[in-house]
C-alpha cells in the first residue's frame, strides 16, 4: 500500500512474542485492523468476542499492560511494544491452573449464555490489578461498560467479590 512504510510491530500476547508485519498483503497487519481482528483472525485467539464492534458493549475487552481496553476500538498498529492479555492468557502460565476469578465464575455460575463472559472477566481482572480489595460498588462501576443481556450481573458481582476476598 502506498504511503505506508513496511515495518514490523511487536506484541507480547499472553506471554508469547509476535512480530507482525504491517502492510496490505494477506497475512499482514493493515493499519485499519483492530486489535480484536488481529487477535481473532490473525492469531486465532477467538476467546475474545466481538458483539457491537462499536466500543459500546465491552464484549471485546482485553488487557493492555494490565489495563482494560476495548479491542474493537484499538488499532493493532498502535499496540507496538505492548503486553496484551486475552481470556486465553488468564490461566496461570506455569501451572495452567485457572485464575481465582475464573474459578469463582464457575463456582457462582456467573454467566448464562457466556458470550459476554470473556469481556467481563477481563474487565474484572483489570479492576483487581488496580484495586485488589474492591467494594461491591467498585465492582459495579468497573463493569458498567460491559453489556450482558441474560442478566448475569448479580452472580458476576458475587463471583468477583469472592475472588477478591481470597486475597483479603
Amino acid at each position: 500500500m502506498k504511503g505506508i512504510k513496511s515495518r514490523k510491530i511487536r506484541l507480547v500476547v499472553n506471554g508469547h512474542i509476535h512480530e507482525l508485519e504491517v502492510g496490505g498483503r494477506p497475512g499482514q497487519i493493515k493499519p485499519s485492523h483492530t486489535l480484536a481482528h488481529t487477535l481473532r483472525e490473525t492469531l486465532g485467539l477467538t476467546g475474545t468476542k466481538v458483539s457491537c464492534d462499536h466500543g459500546a458493549c465491552g464484549c471485546c475487552t482485553v488487557l493492555m499492560d494490565n489495563q482494560a481496553v476495548l479491542s474493537c476500538m484499538t488499532l493493532t498498529v498502535e499496540c507496538d511494544g505492548k503486553k496484551i492479555t486475552t481470556i486465553e492468557g488468564l490461566k496461570d502460565p506455569k501451572t495452567e491452573g485457572l485464575d481465582p476469578l475464573q474459578q469463582a465464575f464457575i463456582d457462582h455460575t456467573a454467566f448464562q449464555c457466556g458470550f459476554c463472559t470473556p469481556g467481563i472477566l477481563m474487565s474484572a481482572k483489570a479492576l483487581l490489578y488496580e484495586n485488589p480489595l474492591p467494594t461491591e460498588e467498585d465492582v459495579k462501576e468497573a463493569l458498567s461498560g460491559n453489556f450482558c443481556r441474560c442478566i448475569s450481573h448479580y452472580q458476576v458481582v458475587r463471583a468477583v467479590m469472592s475472588a477478591s476476598e481470597e486475597v483479603r
Binding site: 481473532r40 485467539l45 477467538t46 476467546g47 475474545t48 468476542k49 466481538v50 486475552t86 481470556i87 486465553e88 488468564l90 490461566k91 485457572l98 475464573q102 465464575f105 464457575i106 463456582d107 455460575t109 454467566f111 457466556g114 458470550f115 463472559t117 470473556p118 472477566l121
Partner: peptide, 21 residues
C-alpha cells in the same frame, strides 16, 4: 444441588466455540 455447568470451564477460558469462531 448447585453443580458446575458442564460448559463452565470452556466459557471462562474462552474455549467455547461460538459460530463466528
Amino acid at each position: 444441588k448447585a453443580t458446575p455447568r458442564k460448559d463452565a470451564a470452556d466459557i471462562v477460558t474462552g474455549g467455547s466455540r461460538f459460530l463466528n469462531d
